[in-house]
Structures are given as structure tokens and as C-alpha cells.
Simulated scan of single mutants.
Amino acid sequence: MGVEIRVEGLKKSFGRQVIWEDVTFTIPAGEISALLGPSGTGKSVFLKNLVGLLRPDRGHVYVGGGDVPRLRENELYDMRRKFGVLFQDGALFGSMNIYDNIAFPLREHTRKSESEIRRIVLEKMEMVGLSGAEDKLPGEISGGMKKRAGLARALVLDPEIILADEPDSGLDPVRTAYLNQLFVDLNTEMGATFLIVTHDIGTARVLPDNLGLLFRRGLVMFGPREMILSSTHPAVNQFFNARRQGPIGMAEEKDQAEVASEGQIPQAMPAPIPPQLMPSDGRLRPSMRRPGEWLRQHQTKPPPGSFVDDQGRNWLTDWDSLTHAGHRPQ
């Protein structure tokens, strides 16, 4: 099962440039969370702090009971085995075929026999849809296949936490949709904690259980998907609905005069909340919430048109019939 990640009072800077000053939130165990924000807000830097590749100026990162910035080198090495990381470009070794790229962590960090390594590698390749591509070099496959090969490599040590840094960068919308479905299916099967850093609003709106937004050297908001997508907070509303009106500018943030001038314009309402992606086999993930559950609990009306899919089915009213049993798996 997945592991909870608890971040408290995290600050990171490079020289005089402050990346973020006081980031505090909890990434729930076994759930899919996504972290977004304008370019330059330190999303990739945050991932490096989670695994101890960078140390924060102050603060704590608790993973499975250990505080990552305060671990000794041998403890840090053991802790990192909890993580599987999908890098933005796949980070495959160009001179190795796909099989050897995926086998690399097993050969480096375990004493498994080659027959056992082969069994694991082929199993993970099948999971990500790469069966038959063992002998291909990274230069011979598409960008989407590189992402899936990088994901298979991230899975071979059976990690409890999967980190994905911009997994949809460079992919067309169709391949992005396939990759999102793969994340949902892997979470269903493995129960691992997923944290996905992305710029893709389409991904953010349908994939995760939880969403967070980094902006202005801090975490603006983090919480259940419905909380974020129904929020009227200026930065959250602007970013997750891809609008020009709001505090986020072309560079990073607008000056006060520009924001004040926009105050004359009525704030647009959040867009309809789409249904969340279901696993391919129709099962409910343990962390899936019934559509509208958070909204009902907090007496918040969903934006008009919410929870209707592209086939016209209303997941808010027809949840029980659409999910066959209408209950969580035991």
C-alpha cells in the first residue's frame, strides 16, 4: 500500500531567489494527487526535496516516519527505495535497449538472479503496454513509448510512492489520455501513492483525487478535486479554468494596478466539474469519492453542468447504476 507524505513549513531558495517560503500539506497514502502551478514556481524542485536530492532551507518532509532532510546517507538510501520516479523526458540510457533500461534498478539495488529480473521486467513491460519492445533502443521509439518505458523502470522495485514529473509533456492529447488511464489502473492494482506534477489542465480536472496549486512562493491551496475545481479563489479559479483574468500574468504575477483594473470585470464562475476517470475494469478505487460528496458535505453547489460525461451520462444522479454496485470494494 501507499505511504503518506507530510510536508511542514518547507522553505527553499537559491541564493536570493526564494522558490517557496512556507509549504505545508499532507499527500494522502494510496491516493492520486497532482501539483500544478505557473512555470518557475518550483514544482520539480519540490519533487527533488521529497526524495532528498535537494535539502530545504528549513522545514520537514516526513515519509513513512522519517524526516527526509535529517536522514543520514544510509537512511536516505533506504528511504529512496520507497519511491519510483518517472522523469520528464523518460531519462532512458540511450545506449541501452528498453529491456536493460528497465532492468537497471534491479541490477543496481538487488541481488536477484537474471531469471527473476527477466520475470519482473517483462511483467512491468506488459503492465505499461510495451510487450515486444525489449530490444528497441530509446532512439527507435516514440515519445509516448519512452514515457511508458520510464514508468516501467519506476515500477520494478515495487515502490510505495510514484512521482511523475510532467509525464504529459511532449505528448499529444490522445497519448496523454492513455497515460492518464494507465495511472488510474496502476493505482487500482498497486495501491501506491501517486504525486503527479503537470501543466495539463485536462489531466488535472479528471485524473487525481487531490489537487494543489503553487504560486507566489507558496502553496495557494491543496485538497480534494471537487474543492479545488469549485473554488472561487482568484488564482485557483484562473489557473484551473485557463483564464487571463486573475493574479497570474504572462511572466509570473501581475502588478497590483493590473489586478485592480480587472476588478471592474465580474469574476467568471468555475467551469463544470467533469466526472473522475474510472479504472478500465470498472472497479472503484478505494480512494474514489462519490461525485458531489465533498460539495454536499460543505454545502457547496457544483457549477452548472458538472459530472456529465461526453456520452451525456450524469454521474451525480446515476452513480449507483453507472458503477454497477454503487459501493467501494471490500
Score class of each variant (00 low, 15 high):
133 A>G: 02
287 S>R: 09
299 Q>Y: 00
308 V>R: 12
205 R>A: 14
298 H>V: 00
140 E>D: 11
187 N>I: 03
146 K>A: 00
70 R>N: 14
144 G>H: 03
134 E>G: 01
263 G>C: 09
192 A>I: 02
36 L>F: 13
11 K>E: 15
208 P>S: 02
25 F>H: 13
78 D>I: 12
86 L>V: 08
106 L>C: 08
240 F>L: 08
232 T>C: 05
277 L>W: 00
198 T>R: 00
208 P>Y: 00
325 A>S: 13
293 E>A: 11
49 N>F: 10
70 R>K: 12
179 L>P: 06
264 Q>F: 12
211 L>H: 12
204 A>C: 12
101 N>D: 05
173 P>Q: 14
190 M>C: 03
192 A>L: 04
51 V>S: 09
277 L>T: 03
182 L>R: 02
25 F>R: 09
32 I>F: 02
330 Q>C: 07
288 M>I: 00
146 K>E: 04
65 G>T: 11
161 I>Y: 14
128 V>E: 03
72 R>D: 09
285 R>T: 03
133 A>R: 12
31 E>Y: 04
222 F>E: 08
122 L>G: 02
25 F>V: 10
302 P>E: 05
91 A>N: 09
172 D>W: 09
29 A>I: 11
1 M>I: 09
194 F>Q: 01
176 T>D: 02
138 P>D: 10
241 N>F: 11
258 E>S: 12
224 P>K: 08
229 L>R: 10
120 I>Y: 05
249 G>L: 09
233 H>K: 09
159 P>H: 15
83 F>Q: 07
245 Q>N: 10
46 F>Q: 11
9 G>D: 14
158 D>A: 15
217 R>C: 13
229 L>T: 08
104 F>R: 04
138 P>W: 05
99 Y>P: 01
237 N>A: 12
36 L>W: 05
46 F>A: 09
192 A>T: 06
326 G>K: 06
269 M>S: 14
109 H>V: 09
105 P>S: 10
180 N>C: 07
4 E>Q: 15
227 M>Y: 01
99 Y>F: 12
39 S>R: 08
83 F>R: 09
270 P>K: 07
137 L>Q: 13
217 R>F: 11
189 E>M: 10
30 G>I: 10
169 S>H: 05
85 V>A: 02
262 E>G: 10
34 A>E: 05
322 L>F: 06
59 G>M: 11
185 D>T: 03
233 H>C: 08
93 F>M: 08
167 P>T: 00
282 G>Y: 09
165 D>A: 05
200 D>N: 15
